[in-house]
Simulated assay, not measured.
Amino acid sequence: MAEEAMPDPDHHTPVFRFAPSPNGVLHLGHALSALLNAERAKATGGRLLLRMEDIDIGRCTPAFEQSIRDDLSWLGLTWEEPVRRQSEHIDAYREALDKLTSLGLIYPAFLSRGEIKAHAKRAADRGHSWPRDPDGAPHYPEFERDLDPATAQQRIAKGERHSLRLNMTKALSLLKAPLSWTEGTDNTTIAADPAAWGDVILWRWDAPSSYHLSVVVDDALQGITHVVRGRDLFHATSVHRLLQNLLDLPAPHYTHHRLILDKDGRKLSKSEGASGLGHLRAQGLSPLDIRGLLNL
C-alpha cells in the first residue's frame, strides 16, 4: 500500500484499537468493547488507538464523534492522537479496490436488496434453495457476474446506481492454502469460510468504500496486532482474512467478545437511548457502575 503505516517505536509492541462509527451515541455494548481493548492494551504494555469509522458520510457527524470522545474520557480511557478518520483516507481504500480490480475480482452489480430477495423468493417458490450469508441475507445471484461489460459501462455512464462486488469464486481460486485465524486468549485456530458470504460488496454508490474493505486496510496501515470486537463480527472475519490474503496484508490476532443484549435478547442498538452512556451518566451512574453492569 502506498500510504505509510503510523509510526511504531517498537514493532513488538501490541497495538489495539477501538473503532466506533460516529453515527449515533455509544451504548453499553460499545463500553464493553472499549474497556476490554483498554484492559488488554494495559496488560500487555500495548498501545490503544481510537479510529472513527465514518465511511457512511451521510449519517456520521462531528457531534456524534465528540460525544464518543466525551463518553470514552468519562470511562477513564486514553488513546493516542491523532485519531484516524476513514473519511480522510478514501485514496487508500481506492488503491486496495484497484488492486482487486486488476486481479479480475471486481464486477459492477445493479440489483437492489429487494430484487435480490425477489430472486431468492422465486427460487423458493419453485422448490429450490437459495444460499444465504451468516446474517441471513440472500446471496447476490451469481449469473449477474456475466453481465456484458460494455452494457454495464453504459448503465454506469447513465448514472444507474450500482455497487462493486467481489467475485467470490474467482477470489477463492487464487488461494494457495485454506484460510484461518487465531482466536481468543487460548489461541484457537478457526477455519475461515468466506464462501458463506457470497459476492460481498466492497464499494457502494452512496459510500466510498465498504466496512469489509476499509477495516482491513485500516488495521494494516495502523499496525493493529490485536482486534478485540463483538461476537456479531465473528463470521465476518472470514471475509477479512480473504481480503488480507488477496491484498498481501498481515492478519491480526482476533478476539470476539460476548454481546450485551436487551431485554428481548437482541443486540443493543444505537437507537435505543436507554442504554446510551450519556443517558446513563445523566441518571447518576458512575464509570464504576458501568463496569458493574458489564460484569467487569
Rank of each mutant, 00 (worst) to 15 (best):
E3Y: 14
E3N: 05
E3Q: 15
P7I: 01
D8K: 06
D10N: 14
H11Q: 15
V15D: 10
R17S: 05
R17G: 05
F18L: 14
P20Y: 12
P22Q: 07
N23Q: 05
H27G: 01
G29V: 00
L32A: 03
L35Y: 01
G46C: 12
R47E: 10
L50S: 00
L50T: 00
E53H: 04
E53Q: 01
I55S: 05
D56R: 01
I57D: 13
G58F: 00
R59H: 03
C60A: 09
A63H: 03
F64T: 03
S67T: 11
R69G: 01
L75W: 04
L77K: 08
R84V: 15
R85L: 15
Q86G: 13
S87D: 13
E88L: 15
R94A: 14
E95L: 06
L97F: 02
K99T: 14
L100P: 00
T101G: 11
I106A: 06
Y107Q: 05
P108E: 12
A109Q: 13
A109M: 15
F110S: 08
L111T: 00
S112D: 11
G114W: 07
A118F: 08
A123L: 12
A123M: 11
A124G: 07
A124L: 06
H128N: 12
W130H: 10
W130R: 11
P134L: 10
D135M: 09
H139S: 07
Y140M: 14
E144S: 04
D146V: 00
D146P: 00
A152E: 05
Q154A: 15
R155E: 13
R155W: 15
K158V: 08
S163W: 02
S163F: 02
R165F: 07
M168A: 08
L172I: 11
S173I: 04
S173Y: 01
L175N: 04
S180N: 06
P194G: 07
D199Q: 09
I201G: 04
L202A: 10
W203F: 14
S210W: 11
S210Q: 06
S210H: 07
H212D: 13
S214A: 15
V215Y: 05
V215F: 03
V217C: 08
D219Q: 08
T225S: 15
H226E: 14
V227E: 09
S238T: 12
H240C: 06
H240G: 06
R241C: 14
R241L: 11
L242I: 12
L242M: 09
L247C: 06
D248A: 10
L249C: 02
A251W: 04
P252I: 14
H253M: 11
H256L: 09
I260F: 02
L261C: 01
L261P: 00
D262I: 06
D264A: 10
K267V: 09
S271E: 07
G273K: 08
S275W: 10
G276M: 07
H279K: 11
Q283H: 02
Q283L: 05
G284A: 08
G284E: 05
S286K: 04
P287I: 03
L293Q: 03
L296P: 00
L296N: 02
